[in-house]
Simulated scan of single mutants.
Amino acid sequence: MAPGDRIETRVDSAGRLPVCRRRRPDGFWLDDLAEGLTFRIGAYEVTAAEVKDFATRYDPQPFHLDEDAAGDTLFDGLAASGRHTAAITMRLLTSAFPIAAGVIGSAIHLEWPSPTRPGDDLRLEISVGTIAHSTSRPGRGSVTLTYDTINQHGEVWQRTTGRVIAWQRPAAESAAATGGK
């Protein structure tokens, strides 16, 4: 893959979350990524029942639990918890943009410019930023990703900048992938 490449995935006819078509079965290795790559991944439909269930368990505030009570708040209606939006974002990220050995974060910054609502169909737009190879731990590096969680109208509900750890492809696999060269 080269900088500027765009990869788009969609949910299949059975409603399963997507997997990028242009990736290795074991996920992306550090060697597979390049600064400037972008991915569009989605979709995930948010339901009122899911918003209320998450809120009941993790963020029990009136604007996440009850439509009537939420109408008299800053949100002017039922809104998902920001942490719920973050959890959905992570689900999309790990399902459709798998990093070999797992998506292991080392830093993250989140913003919620607008609330996620029941009926929203969420997608991710991911851009690969800086790639830094470790000098103290050969064979691994960090990748800065910027990803927006957007709804069906293209409105940004969550903006994330995160740094993940990624490993280089093992030498045996690299040799096999290049025909031993």
Results as ranks from 00 to 15, higher is better:
P3A: 14
H133R: 07
V11T: 15
T56G: 03
V164K: 03
G71K: 14
N151T: 02
D68C: 06
Q61G: 01
R137V: 11
L37D: 02
D120I: 01
R16I: 07
E111F: 07
R159A: 15
R83M: 13
A48C: 04
D148F: 05
G105M: 11
H133S: 01
E67Q: 09
L74I: 13
V51T: 00
V128T: 01
R57Y: 01
L122I: 10
S136C: 03
P25E: 12
D5A: 10
R163Y: 05
G141C: 04
D120K: 03
Y58A: 07
L92G: 00
H153Y: 03
P3V: 07
R140E: 08
T161P: 00
E125C: 08
N151F: 08
V19P: 04
A100Y: 07
D32N: 08
A48R: 03
F54W: 03
P170N: 10
A175C: 08
R163A: 14
W157Q: 13
G180E: 04
W112H: 15
P138W: 07
A49Q: 14
M90A: 10
R163S: 13
A14L: 15
V128W: 01
Q158R: 06
I150M: 05
P3F: 10
E35W: 09
E125H: 15
A69Y: 08
A96E: 02
V51W: 01
F63C: 06
V103I: 13
F54N: 00
A100V: 09
E155N: 05
I131M: 12
W157F: 07
E111R: 15
R117P: 02
G154Y: 12
V128H: 00
V51Q: 03
A107D: 11
D5C: 06
R40I: 07
S136H: 04
P62T: 10
A14Y: 15
I7W: 06
